[in-house]
Amino acid sequence: MRLKEDFFDSDEIKIIESQPNGYMYSNILLKLYLKSLKRNGKLMVTDFIPYTLESLSKVLYRYRT
């Protein structure tokens, strides 16, 4: 995956990051992009099992105490 050097300067990312917790959302977006690389842009656990919202939340977030 190659990000353009102005990725964080795009209007979309600026809008995301201007929201409350916006930097966390842009980080989640990058994590989703990276997760999709193994399966040609699809969010899949394996070739046959897609991620669910629950499974994505478990692999993307660290539990905080």
Score class of each variant (00 low, 15 high):
40 N>H: 10
21 N>Y: 13
2 R>H: 14
30 L>D: 09
52 T>N: 01
40 N>F: 08
49 I>N: 02
14 K>R: 15
1 M>G: 15
45 V>P: 02
23 Y>Q: 13
55 S>A: 05
47 D>I: 11
61 Y>V: 00
21 N>Q: 13
19 Q>S: 10
36 S>D: 07
31 K>H: 08
29 L>Y: 02
5 E>H: 03
12 E>K: 07
55 S>R: 06
2 R>S: 14
44 M>E: 05
10 S>K: 02
16 I>H: 00
58 K>Q: 15
2 R>E: 13
64 R>G: 02
61 Y>I: 00
39 R>L: 12
31 K>D: 08
30 L>W: 01
55 S>D: 01
53 L>V: 13
50 P>D: 04
21 N>S: 13
52 T>I: 03
2 R>V: 10
49 I>T: 10
52 T>W: 00
37 L>Q: 14
32 L>T: 05
65 T>I: 14
23 Y>M: 02
8 F>P: 07
3 L>Q: 10
14 K>Q: 15
54 E>C: 06
24 M>P: 09
44 M>V: 07
62 R>T: 15
15 I>G: 00
13 I>F: 00
64 R>S: 05
22 G>Y: 02
43 L>W: 00
10 S>R: 04
14 K>N: 09
34 L>I: 14
30 L>C: 14
50 P>T: 00
33 Y>V: 10
1 M>Y: 12
60 L>F: 09
64 R>D: 00
54 E>S: 11
58 K>A: 12
59 V>D: 12
15 I>W: 01
20 P>A: 11
14 K>I: 12
56 L>C: 12
61 Y>D: 05
51 Y>C: 04
20 P>W: 05
62 R>H: 14
64 R>A: 02
23 Y>R: 04
57 S>F: 07
36 S>A: 15
40 N>I: 00
43 L>M: 07
52 T>F: 00
17 E>W: 08
57 S>I: 01
52 T>S: 09
29 L>E: 07
10 S>E: 02
24 M>S: 07
49 I>A: 05
49 I>D: 00
28 I>V: 15
9 D>V: 01
15 I>S: 12
1 M>K: 14
